[in-house]
Amino acid sequence: MLEAENLHYAYKPEKPTLRGISLTLRQGTILYLLGRNGCGKTTLMSCLSGLLRPQSGTVRLHGRDLRSYTPAERARHIGLIPQLHTPAFNYSVREMVLMGRAPHLGLLAAPSRGDYAIADAALESVGLADYRERPYTQLSGGERQLVLIARGLAQECRILLMDEPDAHLDLNNQQRVMERVARLAADGLSFIISSHVPNNALMYAHRVLLMKRGTTLAYGAPEHILTETLLTAAYELPIEVIRAEEQPRAIVPRKVSG
């Protein structure tokens, strides 16, 4: 449903950030973007969500060029869940989710009762119905991620792009967020997740795109990509994949010092 073909992007012409990235996101799947800092994950996400226009290559949404969508149209299909941040003003959880209704409303319109109901339902489906009047900034990091997922649901989009949802979260919160993502994927939503935690990719990804300096190092099913050789090449660091009962269970760097 979302396809990218040979994407190129450069903030400065002499230093391209993306050099020929292609990928395909299928319905109900989770696609992980892995790679070192600065390899172009965030830029790729921005190109896919329409925030940036790739200088060459195309992004197609349901077979149509993403550029032909109006911003509101696009936002009804693709949602972006930014990295953990604290807004300047402390809105209630419900208000945050309600903002997902923006692409469905006219510029001068305020949300109606129906919009509130959709927002409440979205909160319900991430298990935070009781939190709706709480101040957003008083939630834990994991809860905030869930609220932003609920906002994507209220947006009624079928594709959610998550920028490092596991950053700054403890294991419990990471697990809570990822389990919810997995359940939503099972219900037919699709996710593209950029991450610095390959272990989560090991557990939840259907596809993995391993990036290095703006190019695709490897792309495919996790069992083919999350190998010691490829990961070592991607992170430029000796990496070990620990297996148990014939299954890869953990990805850890090898200790180099004494």
Partner: peptide
């Protein structure tokens, strides 16, 4: 008030 990136992602 959430910033340009989020507002754009929300179709504005």
């Amino acid at each position: 008030s959430l910033g340009d990136a989020e507002a754009t992602a929300l179709g504005m």
